[in-house]
Design a protein around this nucleic acid. Structure first.
Lengths: 94, 94
DNA sequence: TTGTCTATTCGATAGTCGTCGAAGTGTTGT
DNA sequence: ACAACACTTCGACGACTATCGAATAGACAA
């Protein structure tokens, strides 16, 4: 596993992504849930519409905190644990 | 050293406080700088006015990330390392 | 008291963000 | 082809936020 270095921009995007409670909860579901979590699966656990959920998942994706892969009509969401580790590592330095 | 437990509200406030680049940089200065950092000392290192700096320092204070104590006409800023550790610990669980 | 210095508060403004309903895209099954 | 399903995009709206200049508050020194 190669070591991941976060650019200042990416670090900033991650911090921003975590600043919304709904987004953080979604991330938690993806990190702690089973392997094949889908958009609808996450969205159904939250008090928001599918449109809003889609918007938040996009933010998590551009922050590189999750990966999204098509799978038939579903989309599977997977955590990027390497990025998460890198983020924690950088936070620990302050 | 007693273990610190963060309420969901406080956890959320911290995440929000970290989501602004200027605020994060200020926090870095306070955590890494010398003992007796003042408001003006922090503010002078940033491309913002004193009014804006004051606003951000307030946010860091209500998030419990720093403590502010009067000291003559200055105010001294000190890092809350216990809170910071608790925040990191909570993040590590996801 | 009168300045001077540090920091905060006020009022305003421009920009960002979370949220939704409705319409659109892409996929699967009939 | 058609309908059902999963998800995204669009346009809009209200709320929040970062920022500033100006005015204020508080402490010290002369």
């Amino acid at each position: 596993m190669a070591k991941v270095e976060l650019s200042p921009e990416q670090f900033q995007r991650i911090a921003k992504a975590l600043s919304d409670p709904n987004r953080y909860e979604m991330l938690r579901l993806i990190f702690q849930g089973p392997e094949d979590v889908t958009c609808g699966c996450v969205s159904s656990e939250m008090p928001i519409t599918a449109a809003t959920a889609s918007h938040h998942l996009k933010e998590l994706e551009v922050a590189d905190l999750i990966t999204v892969t098509r799978c038939g009509r579903y989309k599977k969401l997977a955590p990027r644990r390497d990025i998460w580790r890198a983020y924690l590592g950088q936070l620990r330095e302050l």
